[in-house]
Simulated assay, not measured.
Amino acid sequence: MYKRAHGIIETLSPLHVGAAAGEESGNLNLIFRDQFTQTGIIPASSLRGRFRADMRQCFDDEAQGNAQVNYWYGEAADSERSNVNNESIVKFEHASIIWFPVFSPGQPMVWVSSPRLLKRYKRITEMTQEVPEPYTGSRKLRTREARGQRTLFFNIGFLTIDNGITNLSAWFLNGEELPAVIVDDADIGMIHDMALYRQSRVRLKEDQKVVDDNGFFNTEALPEGTILVFPIALRKTDATWNPFNGKRKAEMYLGGLESIGFGYCELTLKGV
């Protein structure tokens, strides 16, 4: 009934997709997180909205553009038109992390993932490779050997590469292997929080260089170089879905804080 496809996102600048913050988080603008791994995600609604907006800009006739957008991405339900099919042709799921970069002295970046994240990537892309065991490193990873053990240094301490070095090129886009390590699902959340990009920001009064009331806040974002994947389902139809004017790779902004350079990404579509 549905054709399967997927998209790969690589962040070219910090990416902030905000989550509602309660009193317990103070003035920290949090990002959306997966409930199990506590790693950042991009909600499907954000992806769908970005695709809708980009398609609408491809048409000079506003009415024609709106009709095409509603056809592919659905329209709001209307109780007075209950006999109309509002289902979208294109369906998205949230984007989850495959790899995210962490600072490591001497490298200076190591891409980190975990079995749960790689299993979702494998399911979406229909890969046949077995997911590597935790604490496995790529061939480009620089480690120190001492007493027969390979160790990797992060700011939080040493990480032991218990399961050795292996070829991880199949788990990277276009087979480009990077310095990488796979850690346990129980550890990925802590390392992810260590790697997040954080920035303190203030809102000044219009007539003075003084912080406005409640105008001081902190923002967190996925760092530049994060790689994410999201599945796409295409309902069978005679028409052809051509996002980005038929291109399969595009640069776009996702999330918030675009005006200060956040959210710049490269998106690649596969299987469309």
Rank of each mutant, 00 (worst) to 15 (best):
M1G: 12
R4C: 02
R4M: 04
A5Q: 08
A5C: 08
G7K: 07
I8A: 06
I9G: 01
E10T: 14
T11P: 01
P14Q: 11
L15D: 02
H16M: 07
V17S: 03
G18E: 05
A21Y: 05
E23A: 15
S25Y: 11
N27H: 13
L28Y: 02
L30F: 10
I31Y: 02
F32H: 15
R33G: 01
Q38P: 00
Q38E: 09
Q38R: 13
S45L: 09
S45N: 11
S46N: 11
G49I: 04
Q57D: 15
E62A: 15
E62S: 15
A63S: 12
A63E: 15
Q68G: 09
Q68P: 01
V69G: 08
A76Q: 14
D78S: 12
N83Q: 14
N83W: 14
E87T: 10
S88I: 02
K91Y: 00
K91G: 00
I97N: 02
P101Q: 06
V102Y: 00
F103L: 15
Q107R: 04
P108R: 10
M109P: 00
V110P: 00
V110K: 01
V112T: 04
L117R: 02
K119C: 05
K119Q: 12
R120N: 09
E130I: 12
E130G: 10
E130Y: 04
V131D: 03
G137H: 02
S138T: 05
R139A: 07
R144G: 06
R150I: 02
R150C: 01
T151K: 12
F154A: 12
N155C: 13
F158H: 12
G164A: 13
G164T: 09
I165G: 03
N174Q: 14
N174P: 00
P179G: 11
V183A: 09
A186I: 09
G189E: 04
A195V: 13
Y197R: 12
Q199K: 12
Q199M: 09
L204D: 07
K205Y: 00
Q208L: 15
V211L: 08
D212L: 07
G215L: 08
G215F: 12
F216V: 06
F217L: 04
A221I: 03
G225A: 11
G225R: 05
T226L: 02
T226N: 03
L228D: 03
L228W: 00
P231T: 03
I232H: 05
A233V: 03
A239C: 08
T240F: 03
N242E: 13
N245Y: 11
A250I: 05
I260E: 09
I260K: 13
G261L: 09
E266C: 10
L267D: 00
